[in-house]
């Protein structure tokens, strides 16, 4: 009886296999991705800054990881830690507005929290981040042998609504960016923020990244 039952089971399995019924182990077909993840490239100071810009524009997990990976982390023992320094006039103005002292120093943990704040300033908007040479400063310094670099950059972060009719500036300003090369890989170690001479500190449309950093502490 059992031999017959066994043979019946085998026959049933074969019949099911050839009958063309739905494969019970067929996984779902994924949707096509809406955008590619950020490709992390830290092989030169320029590619590091491009990766950071893409990270801000991409948002999401991929962007967050790329942004974090661009920053120097002293816990690994190979590099010093990352620090950001706000422009003194911005820090003073923010102190008056927020009625509290700015965090000092601005280190890696605060910068990681800042990324999540920054990409959520206008959640439904598409971000556009651009670097440009800072013509108000001397030329960039790059010493590949010593593995150090100091770049002066103008930056602008804009957000556009889904219909493209509304465009807002989230951050605009200047930055002196100190970078360090370790084992052929570049890290951002210091961001010294500045604002332009004609930039209004009272205008919400002309906030610098330094101001946005300080603002991020009020939302935590």
């Amino acid at each position: 009886m059992f031999r017959h039952a066994f043979l019946a089971c085998i026959a049933l399995a074969l019949a099911v296999s050839v009958s063309g019924c739905r494969n019970p182990f067929q996984p779902a077909t994924p949707e096509l991705p809406t955008g590619l993840p950020v490709i992390e490239n830290f092989s030169s100071p320029d590619s590091l800054l491009t990766t950071m810009a893409n990270a801000v524009m991409k948002k999401g997990t991929s962007g967050r990881n790329a942004y974090y990976h661009a920053l120097a982390d002293s816990t690994g023992g190979l590099t010093p830690g990352f620090y950001a320094v706000p422009y003194p006039a911005v820090a003073d103005a923010w102190r008056l507005t927020a009625q509290r002292d700015p965090p000092n120093p601005w280190n890696l943990p605060l910068e990681k929290l800042f990324y999540d704040y920054l990409i959520a300033v206008l959640p439904g908007f598409t971000y556009s981040f651009a670097w440009a040479h800072d013509n108000t400063q001397s030329v960039d310094i790059l010493d590949d042998g010593a593995g150090t670099a100091l770049y002066h950059r103008y930056y602008e972060l804009q957000a556009s609504s889904a219909d493209g009719l509304t465009i807002k500036t989230i951050a605009v300003g200047y930055a002196d960016l100190y970078m360090l090369k370790v084992n052929s890989r570049w890290y951002l170690t210091r961001w010294e923020d500045r604002v332009g001479k004609d930039q209004s500190l009272a205008d919400p449309e002309q906030r610098s990244m330094g101001w946005r950093r300080l603002d991020s502490t009020t939302s935590q």
């Binding site: 996984p27 994924p30 809406t34």
Partner: peptide
């Protein structure tokens, strides 16, 4: 082994 996220916002990491 295949890790398959379904939605377009997450399939980049499949």
């Amino acid at each position: 082994t295949r890790d398959i996220n379904i939605l377009s916002s997450t399939t980049g990491s499949n």
